[in-house]
Nucleic acid binder design. Structure first.
Length: 654
DNA sequence: GAGCACTGC
């Protein structure tokens, strides 16, 4: 069953008999609305059973005829797998037969699969192969309120696809507060949410829409029992407000009435006492914490600190930071909701109730606070050339777009007309590593070190989870103390670790344990590397592996290979160059900002001159760089002449 | 000189 842990993914709410789930009352409503409207927004809490039941309703109703499938996306792979298992059990089949799932590294589907659970990122990848997603008759986007980049992009793609495939049905499953945004987005009178559009225009457009449209209310209860009731309600705009909520009417009327319907389903929840602590002194916090408990049946007490930690990207400096921000109303409601799933519960909010009113309705979508280079590359590869005019659910700030376009141009992925270059840009988009690493990887064949760069790309994809130190050695031990450490930096150190791991008889936990490696991560690196290799081969790039997996086989000059790897890294990461100062800190070109080698880097304990680094992140105390390798200064002008000539007086940033 | 890492492909 692959690399997920069933215990941690157990979702109690899923294990209710299907007929006792609230969603059972809505079967005919849902089928009617799906039949009538191309887009259905289903509002309901986790625990309503919508994720497990709606796909089964659709299958029974004939939406899987002629070899078509119902696809259901999830933001997380564990959820896709667990829910598929549950639904297979209800349907009475093995996972991978009528009900299956597909996530990275694990495809448990077959020709007979009619209901397919998958991660939303994977569905976007499927669109690269099949732009109209033609295998699906219905696509349900679950947990859309989380507003991940993948979910947002997928909704934009579906909005385009539905124009070419009028028979396609789209179901968006969302928590209450976010529903209106989805509803408006798919309504035809809505002004497209282009990036770079004037704020005033957008506000004016939004105002009109709100004023002439029935709102997707937050307290709506769908209690229609019979199909006829639902039909009446859906067709009569004046009644939409009350129960089942439908925008517009039958298709023959599609000029001024929308193609979207909304339905609120009741979740099965119990009363929750929400207690706001007026002045959260230490005593209060302590008392609340002590009162909190988790039972086997589910969570009964929730303590909500009122904050959340989000990743924010600054387009001017290229630096990411983890920022503690007030939680949104939506997530506060969600947090409280955890308490009332199996019996009445209590939620302690560690802040006064006035503060709650001031919280934003929802979190800032990921699209509006991230480095957009990867997503722009992906959109371009999907044939969406004018990424500024793409109809974003929430348009990203123009600075983010501009920065990403400039950066992709500097990397050579886009030409001066912002068109994807071929083959480089197109190939970069196909690979599942970030643009800088993709460029480094695609530079490797010419330098004769592709096998090694593949390993480096796979190892750095682990995101820092490579090394393992026991508690008692945490303080005094770091990467520099392992047998794999080399002077040239983190990338070659990671290459050493991987090469040793895969060399005869060592692919085992014992080896990892003795050598400070995380066995699970190393196993994952093997998978990632194999997948990247497969993608390269599909792109027509042959990967020549040294005979036994050891670089020195075939008499290659090891020192030369190591240098070539560092040159490749420079070709990808030249915008992330810095020089070490006498005090051991780093400065980027043209920047005064003090950068520190992250304590997990080998450069934490080494001297260097010029380096490139993979990641830069600001914490509350310092700005850290990680995954660092030594380079020659001259390589920067050799491999990025334009960038370093034009910008030699400005900070390159990310 | 000494840390918070979430997800996903």
């Amino acid at each position: 069953m692959g690399d997920f842990d069933l215990d941690s993914s157990f979702i109690p709410a899923l294990y209710k008999p299907a007929e006792s789930l609230p969603i059972a009352n809505y079967e005919s409503d849902i089928l009617y609305l799906v039949d009538t409207f191309p887009v259905l927004v289903v509002v309901g809490q986790t625990g309503s059973g919508k994720t497990t039941q709606i796909p089964q309703f659709l299958r029974k109703a004939g939406w899987c005829k002629d070899g078509k499938r119902v696809g259901v996306t999830q933001p997380r792979r564990v959820a896709a797998i667990t829910i598929a298992m549950r639904v297979a059990e209800e349907v009475g089949c093995e996972v991978g037969k009528e009900v299956g799932y597909s996530v990275r590294f694990e495809d448990s589907t077959s020709k007979s699969t009619r209901i397919k659970f998958l991660t939303d990122g994977l569905l976007i990848r499927e669109a690269l192969m099949d732009p109209l997603l033609s295998e699906y008759s219905v696509i349900m986007i679950d947990e859309a309120h989380e507003r991940s980049i993948s979910t947002d992009i997928l909704l934009g793609l579906l909005k385009k696809i539905m124009k070419r495939r009028p028979e396609l049905r789209i179901i968006i499953s969302s928590a209450t507060i976010q529903a209106k945004a989805f509803f408006d987005y798919f309504s035809p009178s809505k002004t497209p949410n282009n990036a770079l559009k004037g704020e005033a225009d957008k506000k004016a457009a939004a105002k009109n829409i709100v004023s002439d449209r029935n709102k997707v209310g937050s307290e709506a209860k769908g209690e229609a029992d019979e199909e006829t009731t639902t039909k009446d309600i859906a067709l009569d705009r004046s009644k939409v407000e009350s129960e089942v909520k439908g925008e517009g009417g039958a298709e023959e009327t599609n000029a001024d009435l929308g193609p979207v319907a909304a339905l609120t389903v009741e979740g099965r929840t119990y009363p929750i006492d929400v207690l706001h602590l007026e002045s959260p002194t230490d005593d209060y916090v302590k008392k609340a914490a002590e009162t909190a408990s988790v039972t086997i049946d589910g969570i009964v007490y929730v303590v909500d600190c009122g904050f959340t930690k989000i990743r924010v990207y600054d387009p001017f400096t290229g630096i990411e930071s983890l920022v503690v921000t007030p939680a949104s109303k939506a997530s506060s409601i969600q947090r409280a909701g955890r308490a009332g799933r199996t019996k009445p519960g209590k939620c302690y909010r560690l802040y006064p109730s006035e503060n709650y009113d001031e919280l934003p309705d929802s979190n800032i979508p990921e699209m509006q606070r991230s480095n957009l280079a990867p997503v722009i590359l992906q959109l371009k590869a999907l044939g969406i050339d004018n990424v500024l005019r793409f109809d974003y659910l929430s348009p990203p700030p123009s600075q983010l777009m501009v920065k990403a376009l400039e950066f992709l141009y500097a990397l050579g992925a886009l030409d001066e007309y912002a068109k994807l270059t071929r083959p480089l840009g197109m190939r970069m988009a196909e690979l599942t590593v970030e643009p800088m690493m993709a460029k480094a990887l695609l530079s490797a064949p010419d330098l004769g070190c592709l096998s090694e760069m593949l390993t480096v790309a796979a190892m750095t994809s682990l995101g820092g989870n490579v090394w393992f130190f026991h508690d008692n050695e945490r303080k005094k031990m770091n990467v520099a103390g392992t047998r794999f450490a080399v002077e040239e930096g983190d990338h070659l150190t990671l290459l050493n670790a991987y090469t040793d791991f895969v060399t005869t008889e060592k692919k085992q936990p014992k080896f990892c344990h003795e050598n400070h490696l995380n066995f699970k991560s190393m196993t994952r690196a093997v998978k990632i590397r194999a997948q990247l290799k497969r993608y390269l081969e599909q792109l027509g790039i042959a990967v020549e592996e040294p005979a036994s997996g050891i670089p020195q086989a075939r008499g290659r000059d090891l020192a030369k290979v190591a240098e070539q790897v560092r040159r490749c890294l420079t070709m990808g990461f030249f915008t992330h160059a810095a020089q070490m100062q006498p005090d051991g800190t780093f400065r980027a070109v043209g920047s005064e900002m003090v950068l520190h080698a992250h304590p997990t880097s080998i450069m934490f304990t080494r001297k260097a001159d010029w380096v490139i680094f993979q990641e830069i992140m600001e914490t509350s105390t310092k700005t850290f760089i990680r995954d660092i390798s030594k380079i020659e200064k001259g390589w920067l002008t050799e491999y990025a002449p334009e960038y370093y000539q034009v910008q030699n007086t400005r900070r390159p940033g990310g």
